[in-house]
C-alpha cells in the first residue's frame, strides 16, 4: 500500500464520515476495485467501526438519581455560585 497515494486513506475517512463528494467517491471506488491492499485497509476500518459500535451499552447504576439528588444543596438555598 506504500505505493498508493496517502490521499486514498484520507478519502476513505471522508467517505466514512459521509462527507465525500461524488467525483472523489468515484475515484475512491475505482481505486478500491483495483488495489487489494487499500481494499483490505478499508474493510478493516469498517470492521473496526462495527466492533466499536458493538461495545455493549451500559446503564447507570441502580439508585443513581437518588444519589445525585442527595448531593444537591438543600432546597431554599440559592442556586448558583455568583448570584
Amino acid at each position: 500500500m506504500t505505493s498508493c497515494p496517502k490521499q486514498i486513506v484520507h478519502l476513505m475517512h471522508e467517505y466514512l464520515d459521509g462527507e465525500i463528494e461524488e467525483a472523489t467517491k468515484k475515484e475512491l471506488k475505482l481505486h478500491l476495485d483495483t488495489c487489494a491492499d487499500c481494499k483490505k485497509h478499508y474493510a478493516e476500518l469498517k470492521k473496526t467501526i462495527a466492533l466499536v459500535q458493538s461495545a455493549s451499552h451500559i446503564e447507570a447504576p441502580a439508585g443513581f438519581t437518588a444519589k445525585v439528588m442527595a448531593l444537591l444543596p438543600r432546597e431554599g438555598k440559592k442556586i448558583g455560585i455568583e448570584r
Binding site: P61, F64, L71, I79, G80
Partner: peptide, 30 residues
Amino acid sequence: YQICFRMLWDRHEAEDAAQETFLKAFLNIH
C-alpha cells in the same frame, strides 16, 4: 454514565464522575 465509563474505564470512577457532572450542571444551570 456511559461517556464517563468509556472514558475512565472504572465503574466507581465513572459513577463519581457522572454524579459530579449532574451536581455541576445543577449548580451552574443559570
